[in-house]
Amino acid sequence: MSSETETTEDGIVREIGHDEFDPVGTLALILIYFVIIGGLWAFMYFVEFLGNGPTVV
């Protein structure tokens, strides 16, 4: 099978230069990551840790 556009060995169908590339997918993924670790941190500290007494005081 060969696709209609000409492809290189790596399957590249178009060249994207530095100025025309906005890593918007990366931003989306990493914002999700940010929300997850922020939330997990709060849960771990305030629920798991502070709720796990006795604690060293």
């Binding site: 840790f49 796990n52 007494g53 006795p54 604690t55 060293v56």
Partner: peptide, 9 residues
């Protein structure tokens, strides 16, 4: 380590 607590040294 006191198991199930934060007393741990």
């Amino acid at each position: 380590s006191v198991v199930g607590t934060n007393a741990n040294t």
